[in-house]
Design a protein around this nucleic acid. Structure first.
Lengths: 156, 156
DNA sequence: TTGTAATTGCAAATGATTTGCAATTAATTA
DNA sequence: TAATTAATTGCAAATCATTTGCAATTACAA
């Protein structure tokens, strides 16, 4: 249907989808319609999506909501997707580059839920000290920022 | 039953319960059996408790689980309690000192759920920069650490 | 093309939390 | 101290996100 596109951006995406399906196959998993569609949607978004949001973007009837839940569980287990928790009761998922662990944070508008990706991270040396002081091992963290975005400030 | 105790630690706690009920009354709220019991339980723990945990510690029949949910909502609104989210699907609550906002973090064992309170915080200047760079206002953060506690390392 | 394990859909189960509503009660007020 | 009233509670049922059981379907290796 779609003509192949060779511009830098799209060839990057093409490649990504191919590598995604490869990663699945590598694990003896099947590339099914629902899975391809879900990966496609995730590829099109740079911000984490809830299961419902993915479902809403899928051509209707493409698959059941339960299938998305199952797909996200699988993709998370394979490290292809990273789960985020904004504290509103719905898990969110973002595609992870191969070989990456997807660790990063977000700045979320408390009024409109707009999301900004943040590269800044909790200082590793401080985390190391916290781990050490308490005798903990393999310490990581979950960190998200909340505030009011420019648009919502204006509306006030 | 219990004899009054005047040591520094306990007199501090006594005072605290009185100030807690005062804070309620100040807002035209009633001091009921369930509420007093819930506050008492929270006072006895330095770590956040889930609604279920509070319920379990209450003398059985003291009150309904729903009453605890409602009490926590009220106490949170009044700023007497702080809600924490360890990402396991159950909200946790910790008493907040008057005039304080209760902001702090935890180090949670991923095996046994043991909790350590952490005073360390995300560097304010970095948070300020993040806010500024994205035009956000009133930025705060949610941060929790996860790892394996000493005990669970041993059991490995 | 076929065999088989992986996957899906649908319905029902879970678990945390909320809500509706009538009965109860803390704290005033007379 | 009793009457008054708004706040509070218990109980059942509703919600919401997520999971599970199971029989029917399907991707893909042989």
């Amino acid at each position: 249907m779609k003509k192949p596109c060779h511009c830098a951006q799209h060839s990057h995406q093409k490649q990504e989808l191919a590598s995604l399906t490869t990663r699945l196959r590598r694990e003896d998993r099947k590339i099914t319609g629902p899975r391809a569609a879900i990966l496609e949607i995730l590829r099109q978004h740079s911000h984490p999506l809830t299961t419902k949001e993915i479902f809403a973007e899928l051509p209707k009837g493409e698959c059941d909501l339960v299938t998305i839940y199952r797909a996200m569980q699988l993709l998370e287990k394979l490290g292809m997707v990273k789960r985020f928790d904004f504290g509103d009761g719905a898990a969110r998922f973002e595609l992870v580059e191969e070989g990456d662990d997807g660790h990063h944070h977000h700045l979320i508008c408390t009024q409109c839920a707009q999301v900004v990706e943040i590269e800044e991270c909790f200082p590793p040396e401080i985390e190391r000290r916290i781990a050490q002081q308490n005798g903990y091992r393999a310490v990581t963290h979950r960190l998200e920022f909340f505030g009011v975005c420019p648009d919502c400030q204006r509306l006030k």
